[in-house]
Amino acid sequence: MKADIKMINNKVVITLEGSFYVEDALLIRTKALSYFQDGHNNFLIDLSQVDYIDSSGLGVLVALQKRALEHHGALQLHGLNGVVKELFELTRLNKIFEIV
């Protein structure tokens, strides 16, 4: 999976591409948490080019969402489609994320 991280208008924008597997989950978690340590707490994760995310990837997004809320920030998701959207719906995670 490819991951591109940029700061746009004081928001951490993470654009992912490909399939989000267990080995990617650890990488994204580590990278994203480093931004929390630098004081950033607003995130946008673009999943429009992601064709699959496994349960470990979903778990990392939940962890980041909880961390953002603890820091009075926000985590938004963008571009859910296909199987990825279906997985969010069947696990009801679409209820706890702000999807833009």
Binding site: S55, G59, L87, K95
Partner: peptide, 18 residues
């Protein structure tokens, strides 16, 4: 049980449900 609001915030345990 992903149908409860409490457990939906769990960071693991969704694999079998999926």
């Amino acid at each position: 049980d992903c149908t409860t609001d409490h457990e939906v915030y769990n960071e693991s345990g969704r694999g079998l449900d999926i």
